[in-house]
Amino acid sequence: MANKPKKVVRSWVKERVAFDRELKDDKFYNSWPWRKARKAFINKNPLCVHCEENGEVTAATVVDHKIPIKQGGEPLNESNFQSLCEKCHNKKSANESRGYGVKSR
């Protein structure tokens, strides 16, 4: 039985939690209305809109809220949806978590 390496704890470094999402968000994203809306939207819009803007053709795997629900975006309104590939969605989400890319009203 191999020993696991000891985890080094540095008090000045904030621990990163992968896929940190509030529990109330999980309830929504696992709901039947969201899964149904997501499936219908991605079937109608199968390509990543960000890649298309750059002249690339990439299959979308994520239905993203243009305006995040936390910031008042409508959760089930298709006008607030966009199809993105995983790479573009991760880039957009990272920018939003840093405070970039979100237009103030």
Rank of each mutant, 00 (worst) to 15 (best):
G101W: 10
K92N: 01
S104T: 07
G99C: 05
A94H: 11
N95T: 07
Q82T: 09
E53N: 12
C85S: 08
A18C: 10
D64S: 12
K92A: 01
E86H: 12
S83T: 03
V17D: 02
M1C: 08
C51G: 04
C85I: 00
S83I: 00
L84T: 01
V62R: 06
K70F: 09
K92F: 07
N45G: 08
E56D: 11
G73R: 07
I69M: 04
V8P: 02
D20S: 15
A59C: 05
F41K: 06
S83P: 04
S93G: 04
K91S: 14
S79E: 07
K14Q: 13
N77H: 01
V9L: 08
P46G: 04
S11N: 13
K4N: 09
V8L: 13
H65V: 04
A60Q: 11
S31N: 07
V63Q: 08
R98A: 15
Y29I: 07
W32T: 11
K36Q: 05
K7P: 01
N90D: 14
P33R: 05
S79D: 04
E15I: 13
D26Q: 07
N80G: 01
E86V: 06
C85P: 02
K24Y: 15
K66P: 01
E53G: 06
Y100H: 14
N43S: 11
S79W: 02
N90V: 06
E56A: 13
A40W: 00
G99Q: 01
A59M: 11
S79R: 05
I69D: 07
S31A: 05
R21S: 03
N45L: 05
R21Q: 10
Q82A: 11
L76Y: 05
W12M: 08
K66F: 07
V62M: 08
Q82E: 05
E74A: 15
F41T: 08
K14D: 10
A59D: 11
E74K: 14
S11V: 12
N45Y: 09
V57A: 12
P46S: 03
E56W: 14
K91F: 14
A37C: 01
K27N: 10
E78V: 13
S93Y: 02
R35G: 06
K24A: 12
E74T: 08
K36Y: 00
L47M: 09
C85H: 02
V13R: 08
V62H: 06
R16K: 10
M1P: 06
